[in-house]
Design a protein around this nucleic acid. Sequence first.
DNA 1: ACTTCCGATCCTTGA
DNA 2: TCAAGGATCGGAAGT
Lengths: 222, 222
Amino acid sequence: MTSFIVDSRETNSRIPVHLRELGVEFEMQEMAAGDFHVGEFLIERKSITDLAKSILDGRLFEQAELIAQASERPAILIEGNLLDLPNDMHPDAMPGAISALSVFWGLSVFSSPNQLGTARLLARLHHHQVNGLGYEVATRVLKPKDKPDGAQAQYLVSGLPGVGPEMARKLLGHFGSARAVFAASIHELAQCNGVGPKTAVAIATALDQSPTKFRVTKKATI
Amino acid sequence: MTSFIVDSRETNSRIPVHLRELGVEFEMQEMAAGDFHVGEFLIERKSITDLAKSILDGRLFEQAELIAQASERPAILIEGNLLDLPNDMHPDAMPGAISALSVFWGLSVFSSPNQLGTARLLARLHHHQVNGLGYEVATRVLKPKDKPDGAQAQYLVSGLPGVGPEMARKLLGHFGSARAVFAASIHELAQCNGVGPKTAVAIATALDQSPTKFRVTKKATI
DNA sequence: ACTTCCGATCCTTGA
DNA sequence: TCAAGGATCGGAAGT
């Protein structure tokens, strides 16, 4: 699950070098299918020209089959500019291949501009699977700095469902402080001008919601 | 499902035109989340610059969450050259975003060079899902769309000064509900792990401050 | 998204 | 037992 294996043939590329520069630890092995084994991903790396070649000679889908059967999370990583195609290639060929890989073989289709980009992506994929995000996604950006007036309270109250800056102002005027707003019952809330029964209920619900489960770090599998 | 729905906002782009030129039939609708609904895929289209912007202002997560919860097969389609990034952006940011979208939100990450490429890819995705390969492909089971319970409360509480997502989580765990957090005294707040005297005072101050409209005296500063 | 920086909190030590 | 010091965590801001 936390493994990072690089196929020995990748010594031809600068990927292993870049990975080391990025401080990633990995093993090199002869791999039966794919080029990188990063956590649950099994990834086949293809430069855009190699990909074009594989499409034309029909070998692409064999390889797709291989990695699709070898992993729960098969992926292809297309490296290079998507416009660098052989002139004689049909313009639908590349999109068609990407679509087929995704629809029929369930592959994730990553893309990177160059070998360094590839290394960075691999490193991040690994890091994310090992450490998660390392932090929680920032909720509530743009917090006001400590202003002496009620801006702080207004911002706080405007976090309630259905409450924007204007409604927050009304609520604060009616109740006197943020603490009082948050202590109010549904009925009391509804007394405030601008607050109807629906909003009142929504507010009370949010306030009384119990923290049975929390997302610490989001974990999803495909 | 063989539907092909395009969000009405896409009229700004040339995608619908290209699609018609490619002989694809589709409907245009106002979509709640995403830009294209192609078979089982729900796809959000982002130009590389828009994507960069969304990363910087943190808006990307919300959108990812939206389409991830609205579909079994959520996807993002990155349009443009992956090297066209704001040069003030950290080089690890874009790969990190792609990785996170894939690992944590289970999104497929497509890529296309331009609007025509996007249209071609969409067309092929549709065609493949309609006409298939003669057999059904086992579509992978996607994410446990665990709607985080208490997210609303966490958002609300993280509006307090010195309180981010993590502290909010701790506070809610300690007090049981947002209402209880907002009712707590300085001393009670300080009981919570991670909350010291400074933070406790800051929180209480924010809660009890009243709009200064009526206050004559000013806060003394050193 | 990532990184850097800073302040607050918590933990350990040693008197 | 408590105070001072240093390690750690989390938040805020900038790229």
